[in-house]
Simulated assay, not measured.
Amino acid sequence: MNALRRIAPALCCTALCGLALTACGDDGLKGTVEDYDTVTVWSDPGPGGRQTGELTTLAPLTVSCYEDGWFKISYDGGSGYIDSGTSILSKKGEVAPGMVPTC
């Protein structure tokens, strides 16, 4: 019984990590921007980045990873970072940081 108590948490962690990684696949997690006028795309995460583009509602994009409050994305016409508070809808539901790997 004690061995089961030690193994069970490790098995749960392994299963959850596997689910998180398979949720995005090799190419990232595909989705669309939800209800916004525009979403600014930045060259780098954080205050040091420069604006490189804008996306509008229903613009398709791919989220490849999460880094300190930012999603790294690619879209038709470029790539960059958007604030992770941006609502992105995928086939798996609204994209959250735990659904994609860390950059």
Rank of each mutant, 00 (worst) to 15 (best):
G98H: 03
A96F: 08
C17N: 08
A23L: 06
E54W: 11
P101W: 04
P45D: 11
Q51I: 14
K92F: 09
L21H: 03
G18R: 00
W42G: 10
E54A: 12
L58N: 10
V95L: 01
C13W: 05
V41F: 09
D68M: 12
G78N: 11
A8N: 07
I73A: 02
E67Y: 13
L58Y: 13
T102W: 09
A23M: 04
S64V: 11
Y81F: 15
P47G: 15
G77Y: 07
L16S: 01
Y75R: 00
L29N: 03
A20K: 01
G69R: 07
G53R: 00
A15G: 03
E94F: 10
T56I: 15
W70E: 00
E67G: 09
G31D: 01
Y75Q: 06
A20L: 05
D83I: 12
L58K: 15
T62C: 08
D83C: 12
G93N: 02
K30P: 06
V95N: 02
A8D: 07
E94M: 09
Y75D: 04
A59V: 00
S43K: 14
C13A: 15
Q51N: 13
G18Y: 07
V95D: 03
P45V: 02
D76Y: 00
Q51W: 06
G28S: 04
K30Q: 05
P45K: 01
S79V: 06
K92A: 14
G93A: 03
G49V: 11
Q51Y: 04
S90E: 00
G69A: 07
T38W: 00
V41I: 06
S79K: 10
T52E: 11
S74V: 11
K30E: 00
A23G: 07
A3M: 14
A59T: 11
N2A: 15
V41Q: 09
T40W: 01
V33T: 03
D44L: 15
I88S: 04
C24E: 06
V41Y: 05
D35H: 14
R6P: 02
A15L: 15
V39H: 00
K92G: 08
G80K: 05
Y66E: 04
P9W: 05
A10F: 07
W70L: 08
P97A: 03
T38H: 04
A10L: 13
S79G: 14
P45F: 01
G80M: 11
P9R: 03
D68V: 15
D37R: 13
M99H: 04
G28Y: 04
L11A: 13
S87Q: 01
V39R: 06
T56N: 00
R6K: 12
G85E: 15
T102D: 12
D83Y: 15
V39M: 03
V100E: 02
S74H: 01
T86Y: 04
G85V: 06
L11E: 09
G53Y: 04
T38N: 10
E54S: 15
A3H: 13
M1G: 12
P45H: 12
V33S: 05
P101E: 04
L19E: 03
A3V: 13
L16I: 12
G93W: 05
C12G: 05
T22Q: 07
T14F: 09
G93Y: 02
S74E: 06
D35I: 09
G98N: 02
R5A: 14
T22V: 13
Y36R: 06
V41N: 11
